[in-house]
Design a protein around this nucleic acid. Structure first.
Length: 278
DNA sequence: CCTTAATCCTGGAAGC
DNA sequence: TGCTTCCAGGATTAAG
């Protein structure tokens, strides 16, 4: 699923349901989805802890307990983290970890394709020092100066750089394509050609797109649902992603699909000229 | 340094 | 209807 708006939607819907609850027991149904130093140790996944808060950096979540324990959840492509009644979970396939939190209340990690995972840490400091230190600034918080500096370190295609979580954390294939369209940028423009003014425009557009997407509950293409099982609605506002062969919403030209950085890329040949149109 | 392909998996959609 | 093929929101690794 899950790029920044979807993960932020999960964070919000989840926090409302789990903060303040005590984790009575953790069931690990499939051990290999639990990774990191505390792998396989239920106690490292908040067993016995009361949940204090749910954090997010880029596409990753961290459920923090009041004893300092942290379960960092990365949803990968098909992962979901939900909270609900026993009945809501009953019959679901691919539920790998379950946190029992009182009568008829549980949180579960489900991931059919198993590209996601859970990393247990003993403290928030350990999470930041061992894992989140590898991520760049969150896409909602990055400054023009930092974005420009990170982009200018490489000559790769702009799209490839924006997908790199060390450059900016939270963007994936959907929101990079949307961002490049609204900023009128060609996906293969060299990243080191981004000047300060352009970086500033990109930051403004990035924040606006991500905010609108969060307000719509994220984009649901296939699997994504929030912590209460609700689908998002932003897919209906996509300007280019998933619209190959359809008319550009701005100029009516047929949108084209190419492959950039190994990913399907949809763009408008008129609105996103190679030379850059401003 | 950079790009591409393969890889981890399941399952939905499209094609025949 | 059924079988096959292709494709997918991520991220790492190896190979060229």
């Amino acid at each position: 699923m899950p790029e920044l708006p979807e993960v932020e939607t999960v964070r919000r819907t989840l926090a409302g349901q789990v903060v303040g609850r005590r984790v009575q027991k953790v069931q690990i149904h499939r051990a290999e989805v639990v990774r990191g130093d505390l792998r396989g140790e239920a106690v490292g996944l908040l067993e016995g802890d009361r949940i204090r808060e749910v954090l997010r950096l880029g596409k990753q979540l961290a459920v923090v307990g009041d004893h300092g324990g942290v379960a960092c959840v990365h949803l990968g492509m098909t992962g979901s983290l939900c909270c609900g009644s026993d009945k809501a979970m009953a019959g679901l396939k691919h539920v790998h970890v379950v946190w029992e939190m009182g009568k008829n209340r549980r949180m579960w990690f489900r991931d059919p394709r198993r590209f996601g995972g859970i990393w247990g840490f003993a403290s928030e400091e350990a999470l930041w020092g061992q894992r989140w230190n590898k991520l760049g600034p969150d896409a909602t918080l990055i400054t023009p100066a930092k974005l420009q500096k990170a982009l200018n370190r490489t000559r790769r295609a702009l799209k490839a750089a924006l997908l790199d979580q060390q450059v900016v954390a939270g963007l994936g294939n959907i929101y990079v394509d949307e961002l490049l369209f609204v900023t009128h940028l060609h996906p293969e423009m060299p990243a080191d050609a981004v000047n300060r003014a352009l970086a500033a425009r990109m930051v403004r557009s990035m924040r606006r797109i991500l905010e609108q997407a969060v307000n719509a509950g994220g984009s649901t293409l296939r699997d994504y649902v929030d912590a209460q099982g609700q689908a998002g609605g932003y897919q209906n506002q996509h300007k280019v992603y998933g619209r190959k062969g359809l008319p550009c919403r701005v100029c009516d030209r047929t949108l084209e699909a190419t492959v950039v950085a190994g990913r399907t890329t949809v763009s408008c040949p008129v609105c996103q000229p190679r030379e850059g149109g401003g």
